[in-house]
């Protein structure tokens, strides 16, 4: 038995552990009470849910992401890297059958994800508020995932890195459902509840109007603050 086979089995066991614990968390959420909303809706719940998972995630949709555009884009890049890394992990036993161009593309995605993750790790220490709100778990999670993405990028290019990638993957997969990384499944719940709120209560229509970038908007925003004056205020807030 070679080291690559042994480490891949360890990663597989970790993956199964991860899936089982995540599934049990999902089930635990489903067991918690969530009663039928008896209030009479002002608008469609679906409109809100659709917005919450699409337009509402755009970098220009929220004041916070407009102010922290770079940090938000860094986060997006990090998470794109994570999705690419998971796909690559599943495909890893068959890397040698995958054309180099595709592996290189995934190496770029995971590699840049690793760099953006590391940048996030540095920001967590360097930025005063972030340092204040971070737990040890937060620091560990961002560095562990960044390391995993880095290992994946190397493994995609050079098979010699496969055993190392599997070991890091195993550590990340075991830690994911226990520590902060588990927020990934709660994201769907939180966004769903937010979508229900803004949909049923007739808020989503205003937000949709809001989140169409000004260049494509047919008329000035009536019910929000995404105008030039708002951008100025945000710039002031950003400058501190």
């Amino acid at each position: 038995m070679n080291i690559q086979f042994i480490t891949s089995i360890i990663a597989l066991v970790a993956l199964i552990f991860s899936i089982v614990v995540f599934a049990s968390r999902w089930q635990a959420m489903q067991r918690l009470p969530f009663g039928k909303d008896r209030s009479i809706p002002k608008d469609s719940a679906w409109k809100g849910i659709m917005y919450a998972f699409t337009l509402g995630m755009m970098p220009w949709a929220k004041e916070s992401t407009r102010i922290h555009m770079l940090a938000y884009l860094r986060g997006i890049g990090f998470h794109i890297g994570i999705f690419a890394g998971l796909a690559a992990l599943i495909a890893s036993p068959w890397f040698e059958n995958i054309p180099f161009a595709i592996r290189a593309l995934f190496a770029v995605l995971t590699g840049s994800g690793a760099l953006m993750g590391a940048a996030g790790g540095v920001m967590r220490v360097a930025e005063k508020n972030l340092r204040g709100i971070s737990t040890r778990d937060d620091h560990a999670a961002v560095w562990l995932v960044s390391l995993w993405l880095g290992a994946m990028a190397f493994a995609l290019i050079a098979p010699a890195f496969l055993p190392a990638m599997y070991v890091v993957s195993a550590a990340m997969l075991v830690y994911a459902p226990l520590g902060k990384i588990r927020h990934c499944i709660y994201f769907y719940f939180a966004r769903l509840f937010y979508g229900l709120h803004i949909g049923r209560r007739g808020v989503a229509s205003g937000l949709i109007e809001h989140s169409i970038p000004s260049g494509r908007r047919s008329h000035a925003p009536q019910f929000g603050g995404v105008g030039a004056a708002s951008a100025r205020l945000e710039q002031e807030a950003h400058n501190g």
């Binding site: 927020h183 709660y186 994201f187 719940f189």
Partner: peptide, 18 residues
């Protein structure tokens, strides 16, 4: 369920400050 989601989901990214 909504409370558990609110308690679990925060990634402490801090962009809510302003």
């Amino acid at each position: 369920r909504p409370l558990a989601a609110a308690l679990e989901v925060c990634a402490r990214c801090g962009i809510c400050a302003e």
